[in-house]
Design a protein around this nucleic acid. Structure first.
Length: 480
RNA sequence: UCCUCCUUAGCUCAGCCGGUUAGAGCACAUGACUGUUAAUCAUGGGGUCCCUGGUUCGAGCCCAGGAGGGGGAGCCA
């Protein structure tokens, strides 16, 4: 009996001489008078398998249908390759064409395409080496995240996607409604009457599962969320999506220091997992980046190759310092003294990208965890420090990506939390359920959020977040 | 949302000071080739110069408006 095997399996374990059927998509076909070569990829691994046929084995009509992008099933015998590019190849005995791909219309050619062009054909780009590698790494990272938390006693908590709370303050929200947009029911004062809406109130897509995550942590002690998150911000950058995936651990009895250790251990684990399980894909992306760097000026080239860079993060301790210490470093920097920062540096400012980049990429040259920010530039739920000026916040900054994690120890004192929420204008009737956790068995606890796509960007070395998610959603763009 | 750059063949791009019939490489088609590696060689087909309006004897090129995209900033993850 012929076995259907994935190319990954064949290359790893199939015995010479075995009869095999490969099913996949044709990358290239090369033929000469006596022999034809077909390179097939099935997405299981970055490598293709080369199938070979002597002239006459495949009839001419079938051969014509085998073009770049077509889908085929090839049956044959695995033999040692005479060529130098591969160890084994499939000696074809029969070919079935599942689906043709008209070369005049199929947009993927056996050549390099720009990432911008591939974004316009997002329905086909997973068939390229670059995107299949990214998608495999994305999968591996997602799996590693669940594995890390599971192995460390965390429970996966599903927080709501549609939320009735509008108090997270994490950004603009997408409204969820079944009301007739052209003719909504109105109140007497002319405003929309959401009592008539599906849920009987205004609802939105979630911008964060954190508040609900805290509810879980107050029962299960260690939880994490991993789900889609939506922000209706008009952000047009290579680092923002309107729909992205976020991981948010929340842990009872953790203080800020424990939270920092969790963030460091977690990121190192998942990056190391990719290094150990995605070596071929990472090597491919590293070479791709090297090619790209050749067209850059020498001073803009990165000092480390992709894999070296990932190793470096895994092998070195993150720098930990307070916001106040960071401001001091910036103030005493040559760049500040020469007036080269575009934005002024002063205690109390929210650090700008240029400041974060200076700290991470120039000063320390490794991941940095900044803590204890001024309370006025951070969220209402962060625990106030004893000095009354700063909060127990932490941001993890990665080279090239910037902020990859934002987190904090949460305010567990009911009266302080209530006071702070009033100060920032959040009505207690909208978050009464959140406030109650501080009235019923409150506990010190901490957590953070990490943008999944930003992590995938860092691991793959991709420069645009639209290229690490299969179907990016950004302002003015929701194709596919 | 702001600043900035870009839009010419399927793709990546060139196109001089505004002047005849808009070019190249790759891709594609056809042919050649005794095992190729994004094969090679030869030949060939292929254009709404993003859209609208304007200036001009004449616009791919200049001007105005619009659309789409890239990079940077803000906001953040």
């Amino acid at each position: 009996m012929k076995s259907i095997m994935q190319i990954k399996q064949i290359l790893a374990e199939a015995a010479i001489g075995s009869e095999i059927t490969v099913k996949g998509w044709v990358r290239t076909k090369r033929d000469s008078k006596n022999v034809v070569f077909i390179n097939i990829n099935d997405g299981s691994v970055i490598h293709n398998i080369q199938a070979v046929a002597e002239a006459g084995v495949i009839n001419e009509d079938t051969l014509k249908l085998i073009t770049t992008g077509s889908c085929v099933a090839v049956t044959g015998t695995l033999i040692a390759s005479q060529g130098s590019g591969q160890k084994v190849e499939l000696q074809i005995s029969s070919v079935q064409v599942y689906g043709t791909a008209d070369p005049d219309r199929y947009p993927l050619q056996p050549k390099k395409h720009s990432l911008e062009f591939l974004r316009e054909i997002a329905h086909l780009r997973p068939r390229t080496n670059t995107f299949s590698a990214i998608l495999r790494i994305r999968h591996a990272l997602a799996f590693a995240i669940h594995k890390y938390f599971n192995d460390n006693g965390f429970f996966y908590l599903h927080t709501p996607i549609i939320t009735g709370s509008d108090a997270e303050g994490a950004g603009e929200m997408f409204r969820v409604s079944t009301l007739d947009a052209k003719n909504p029911p109105l109140n007497e004062d002319g405003t929309v009457n959401y009592k008539e809406d599906f849920f009987g109130k205004e609802t939105n897509l979630t911008v964060s599962g954190q508040l609900e995550g805290e509810l879980g942590a107050m029962a299960l002690s260690k939880i994490y969320t991993f789900g889609p998150t939506f922000r209706a911000e008009n952000s047009n950058t290579a680092r923002h999506l309107a729909e992205f995936w976020m991981i948010e651990p929340e842990v009872a009895f953790y203080e800020l220091e424990d939270n920092m250790a969790l963030a460091e251990g977690f990121t190192k684990y998942v990056i190391n997992y990719a290094l150990e399980n995605c070596a071929d894909d990472l090597a491919f992306l590293e070479n791709r980046l090297k090619d790209e760097e050749k067209s850059k000026k020498a001073e803009e080239r990165s000092e480390l190759d992709l894999i070296q860079k990932l190793r470096f993060v895994v092998d070195n301790e993150y720098v930990k310092l307070t916001y106040t210490e960071a401001i001091q470093i910036l103030l005493s920097s040559k760049r500040h003294k020469e007036g080269k920062f575009q934005y002024p540096v002063q205690w109390g400012i929210d650090l700008q990208s240029e400041h974060e980049r200076y700290l991470v990429e120039k000063h320390f040259k490794k991941p940095v965890i900044l803590t204890n920010y001024p309370k006025d530039i951070k969220a209402f739920y962060m625990k106030l420090d004893d000095d009354g000026k700063t909060v127990r916040a932490m941001d993890v900054l990665f080279p090239g990506i910037g902020e990859i994690i934002g987190g904090s120890q949460r305010e567990d004192d009911y009266s302080k939390l209530l006071k702070r929420s009033r100060e920032v204008g959040i009505h207690e009737e909208t978050i009464w359920w959140y406030l109650e956790t501080r009235q019923f068995g409150t506990a010190p606890h901490s957590g953070f959020g990490i943008g999944f796509e930003r992590l995938v960007m860092f691991v793959t070395g991709m420069g645009n977040i639209r290229d690490v998610i299969p179907f990016p959603r950004t302002p003015k763009s929701a194709e596919f």
